[in-house]
């Protein structure tokens, strides 16, 4: 067996999955978004589905909501993850327990977490009842609206809770690989603890932090199940709109659902490209 055939055989499963499932799926989505669905008698591709969704009254609101959710949860999760990683890098009693607790929720599915948030934070949830029992509020209904609210607080809460350990883990691995020698050098060169963090450790962690944050952002921007459970009736996050359109009994809405999926994907890819450029510019010297 030549090296080339061996390589081809080794890559075959991955290529099959990528080509067979991902590319075919992407192709079909694109075709349908251009209203090309021979089964329904649509054989004349056009852009009307895109025009329809982009000019629909709620589209811009939904897009803004999705961007808001993704940006806010990524920023909060990344900041808290940085603090957590810095804390867990120290040795102190109880470190192992905290480390375990932080990693525990990596194993919990998003949807389970979402339902948990609903049970805890909704106006009929545990915290509302506790606050009522403690006499802090007159009726549970006075509890602040934290879930299924129009600004997506419940969704952001879930994403921060769920993605914080993921970013923390990546940062910790990064810190372990870097060691603390660069900071020691910085201190010895006259940098205070804060200056060594700000001018040496943070820039060196940036590539990893950006990579992890991009993944979190892409997920929070494109996933539908969490905003479906924890989102308000209106406005709806963009992926929820796409999901509803694609499961509508009226098959005529399919092209619009597909067009929305394409728009979500395009925005995601555009952001990834921006990130890659920022990385190439800012971190070219970083390993």
């Amino acid at each position: 067996m030549t090296d080339r055939t061996r390589l081809a055989l080794l890559l075959a499963p991955a290529l099959l999955v990528l080509g067979g499932l991902f590319l075919t799926g992407l192709g079909l989505t694109l075709l349908r978004s251009f209203r090309y669905m021979p089964a329904l008698g649509l054989t004349d591709p056009d852009l009307s589905a895109y025009v329809a969704i982009l000019t629909a009254p709620g589209f811009l609101t939904s897009l803004t909501l999705s961007l808001w959710i993704a940006t806010t949860s990524t920023l909060i999760a990344a900041t808290l993850a940085l603090a957590t990683a810095l804390l867990l890098r120290q040795t102190f009693p109880g470190r192992a327990i905290i480390s375990f607790l932080v990693q525990l929720n990596l194993t919990i599915p998003h949807i389970v977490g979402a339902i948990g948030i609903l049970y805890l934070f909704s106006q009929s949830g545990s915290f509302a009842r506790l606050a009522h029992a403690a006499g802090l509020i007159a009726t549970p209904a006075q509890f602040p609206i934290l879930t299924q609210d129009p600004t997506g607080i419940g969704i952001i809460l879930l994403y921060v809770w769920k993605e914080l350990p993921f970013i923390t883990l990546i940062l910790l691995a990064n810190m372990q690989a870097l060691g603390d020698d660069h900071e020691s050098v910085a201190r010895s060169l006259g940098a205070s603890r804060w200056q060594a963090f700000r001018h040496v450790l943070l820039p060196m962690l940036m590539p990893g932090l950006l990579a992890a944050s991009t993944l979190v952002f892409a997920f929070a921007f494109g996933a539908y199940e969490v905003p479906l459970i924890l989102g308000a009736h209106a406005p709806k996050a963009l992926p929820v709109l796409a999901w509803q359109a694609s499961t509508d009994t009226d098959l005529a809405t399919r092209p619009e659902a597909m067009a929305m999926a394409v728009v979500i994907a395009l925005i995601g890819v555009a952001l990834l490209a921006l990130y890659a450029r920022a990385l190439a510019k800012g971190g070219s010297g970083a390993r």
């Binding site: 201190r187 010895s188 006259g190 940098a191 060196m204």
Partner: peptide, 28 residues
Amino acid sequence: PPERRGVTMVFQDPLLFPHQTIAQNIGF
């Protein structure tokens, strides 16, 4: 603290800051 001792240590590895140019490193 180390930054207030007037003692500067050069390590076995150069440990230059990878995100800075050589001039920025020296000026750190």
